[in-house]
Design a protein around this nucleic acid. Structure first.
Lengths: 150, 150
DNA sequence: CTTTCGAAGTTCCTTTAAGAGACTCTGTGA
DNA sequence: TCACAGAGTCTCTTAAAGGAACTTCGAAAG
């Protein structure tokens, strides 16, 4: 229910959750990413309540993650990822990787990704933007930054 | 409220959300990651209701993301990341990166990460595990995998 | 022109989860 | 034997999710 708003916390994880942390939001982004851009498509594919879908779409548009785009002279709209929203796909890809590894079980991953640059079915790897070496939880040390609280 | 369970969907994003998608869960993982391992510490730091914290911790333990570890002869427990849980930190790091870029504003990021391997303050970059080139939403094509529905 | 249609929401009602805070339980050690 | 501290549990209120029927707007068909 998340009545507590995370947006005011001095934490980028909390702030990100404030934008896409509500139930369904990541699944909506996934669908929009793969080309399901219309209200009824999303509703049918997800099985989400129309009321909640409306709320989520508005929230995502308000936060600049999705953009509402008319596609007809009638009042008909499509939802598309903005630049800000497109960068959230990184998150979806990493989520997919974890789910594939830990939750897919015998059947294997439901979806595979082909990396266009090399043509191979692949997965993603986190690397230090500075030195290019692997960068995971244990490879890192947290320090207070300029926007720290207090 | 998320009454709809995502765990049965043929989608690794949905399944991952079933494990850590409830409100507060990513923030609990963040805190445990940085060394807040006890109930009262977590409760005080997050300001979460004790009831909800209990529910979340049990859920995360049930799903093998956290491990409950006694630290006293009295019934006292600490929560620690399992191997499965440690890999979720990747997700937190990517979330942090997005929040730092798009939500931190004037003040700048509240937390900085130093990559131990190179000693630099850095951020994370997604690369293809196969060829090492950048791998983001637009660089990738989705195909049905062995565990696809239907 | 009136009727029908389709997409995109709105509204209303029920059920369930989150928030808040007091209460319990269990060993310890003063 | 009393007080304490940590880790929960209980109860009540409030708000959000689910479900399903209803509205609205313009287009095209008769």
């Amino acid at each position: 229910m998340q009545r507590t708003s995370f947006g005011e916390m001095a934490c980028s994880i909390a702030r990100t959750l404030d934008v896409i942390g509500e139930p369904w939001s990541p699944l909506i982004l996934r669908d929009v990413w793969v080309g399901m851009n219309r209200f009824d498509q999303l509703q049918a594919d997800l099985g989400i309540s129309r009321k909640v879908l409306t709320e989520r779409l508005n929230h995502l548009v308000d936060h600049g993650v999705l953009e509402r785009r008319p596609y007809d002279k009638r009042p008909r709209y499509e939802y598309h990822l903005t630049a800000k929203g497109s960068e959230l796909v990184d998150l979806l890809i990493v989520m997919t990787g974890w789910g594939d590894k830990w939750l897919a079980g015998e059947a294997g991953p439901p979806v595979l990704y082909r990396h266009r640059a090399c043509g191979e079915i692949s997965s993603v790897d986190l690397r230090c933007a500075h030195c290019g070496e692997p960068m995971h939880g244990g490879d890192v040390e947290a320090l207070a930054g300029p926007g720290a609280a207090g």
